[in-house]
Amino acid sequence: MTEAVRNPRLHALGAASIELAEIVGGMGVLLARILVRIHKFDGEELVKNLYKMAVKSLPIVAVTALFTGAIMVIQAAVIVKRFNAEGLLGWGAGFGTLREIAPLLTALMISGRVGANNTAELGTMVVTEQIDALRVLAIDPIAFLIVPRFIAILATLVMMTLFADALALFGAAYTGQGLLGVEPMTFFNGLTGGLLDFGDVFNGLFKSFVFALVMALASCHFGLATKGGAPGVGRAVNASVVASAAGIFVLDYLVSFLG
């Protein structure tokens, strides 16, 4: 350590790689520890977290979904006008929404609200010794705190994506009517006319499940690894949000090619 670093750039690269390996490894170990205890979750904590994460996120997901649907129609509108194919509007807007945009944007919003919150809460519990207090009461912090949160985040994101799918299509249909004069029935016919099937919806839902997995692990990992008092909580939240966003994009890529 005391030896002078000969090549600072190389050194920084190495340090960054080790840090990345540490984070991914830490998340992997956390996943293993969660899975071992997955049957021992605390029902009361699960209900509490589901309420806090899912019910309280409804308004923000609703606003996001409605506007996203509308934006997708505006983007598709140019093409529809060019080819004068109104019947394709539903398919044009629906395909991207169901497979890509709704799961992605819902995940980003939920990551900002739920993931960041979760890290802040766990981080505060770490720096104020509340985790130690649990251990001293002979209560396993992973089983009591982390497992319910893990399950709640998974359930929340998948449910919210389904909800966002529906609302985005609704917003898209009525924007299509307002902007292009395409009847909502024509829009929905275009949607169900054989070019889109439940496979596309499932593809989107599977994606959101994968996003939830990375978000749950990242937010719990950074929360539990919080160090250094109050400023440490801020740093942990920031790290968790950035890691979740990057993780979501990388996994989106991988899942898109698999599905």
Partner: peptide, 24 residues
């Protein structure tokens, strides 16, 4: 280890300096 510590912790309770109740 953490598992063996369980019975010990039930025998020895601890009251923290800042009380450390669960805020939520």
């Amino acid at each position: 280890d953490e598992q063996q510590m369980g019975p010990v912790r039930k025998k020895c309770a601890m009251v923290f300096q800042h009380a450390t109740l669960f805020d939520s």
